[in-house]
Simulated assay, not measured.
Amino acid sequence: MRGIRLVMIIVTFCLFVGGLRVMDTLPLKASESSSKEGANASVEQPLELEVVLKREYIDGHVGEERKKETIWSMEDFWARYDGWELVDQREGHITFRKKVDDLSPFVKKAGYFGINEGNELILFDGSDERSEVIQSFFQIDVGKLESFQSEELQKGIKIKSKDQYLSLLKKYEYFSITPTP
């Protein structure tokens, strides 16, 4: 929280020094507009940013959402992204990241555990014929597996929940081949 506040202070300072006063640029009411015309002939513009939100899921998948935002108040902007980690900030662009303690929507829909030709436990996309590998974990000693376990992995085990995902990882980690130093 201290880090976000520090970044907020630095960004706000930089915006004021650069001549962009974002904090107090809410649109004027018609009555205020006429009384302030002499003192302030032009209303300052809000800050326009491209915001990128990266969600990192426990299955290794990274989801990305991009959106344009108009910022009238830096305080409101930073409050909206409380809990997100600032990753990158450039002129007109800001990227946040958040670790999500769940499976990605993609893996919930199409994820399967299986085994490849090198006897590695893999997470793969079972939604089509290509069956692309999403993530590799560790090599399994297939000689230690029961025949039904080997058959299950050859066919693929559909991932249905985070608990099942973690349980299967733990179960097959028992059969992993640990490299000798």
Rank of each mutant, 00 (worst) to 15 (best):
D76S: 12
L168F: 07
D101K: 09
R130C: 10
G111P: 06
E85F: 02
P46D: 06
Q154L: 14
Y172F: 08
E65V: 14
I115W: 13
T70D: 09
G143I: 05
R5H: 11
S35L: 10
S73M: 05
G38W: 13
L153W: 09
F13R: 15
K144T: 06
K170Q: 03
G3K: 15
F106Q: 01
R97D: 11
I177H: 08
Q164I: 05
C14R: 00
F137I: 04
E151P: 08
R2Q: 12
L145Y: 01
R97M: 01
D101S: 04
I140W: 04
I159S: 04
N116L: 07
I115C: 12
I140G: 04
M8H: 02
S104D: 08
S31C: 01
P27G: 10
L15G: 05
G143A: 05
R90W: 10
E85P: 04
E120V: 07
V100H: 03
G38R: 14
I157A: 05
A39K: 15
L168K: 01
E173L: 11
I9N: 14
I10E: 06
D102H: 01
G19N: 11
T12N: 02
S127N: 09
Y112P: 05
I94K: 11
E146A: 07
S161T: 15
Q89W: 13
I94H: 05
M74H: 06
G156Q: 14
F16G: 14
G92M: 00
L169G: 07
W72S: 03
G92I: 11
R97W: 09
E152Y: 09
Q139A: 04
S127P: 00
I94E: 08
R2T: 02
R21E: 15
R2E: 09
M8P: 06
C14L: 07
L86C: 00
I140N: 00
L20Y: 12
S42V: 12
L6V: 15
R21F: 14
S33I: 14
A110L: 13
K68N: 12
K109P: 07
G92W: 11
M8S: 01
E117A: 13
R97V: 04
K155T: 06
R55A: 03
M74A: 12
V51W: 06
G143E: 11
P46G: 03
E69A: 10
W84I: 09
G18W: 10
R66M: 10
V133F: 01
I159P: 04
R5P: 00
V22E: 02
I58N: 00
F138A: 08
R5Y: 08
L15P: 01
L47C: 08
A41F: 14
V7Q: 06
I115T: 14
I140D: 01
S167F: 12
F16T: 10
G111T: 01
K36T: 14
M1V: 05
C14Q: 04
E64R: 08
R66I: 06
E64S: 11
P105S: 00
P181Q: 15
G19K: 05
G114F: 03
S136N: 00
R130T: 08
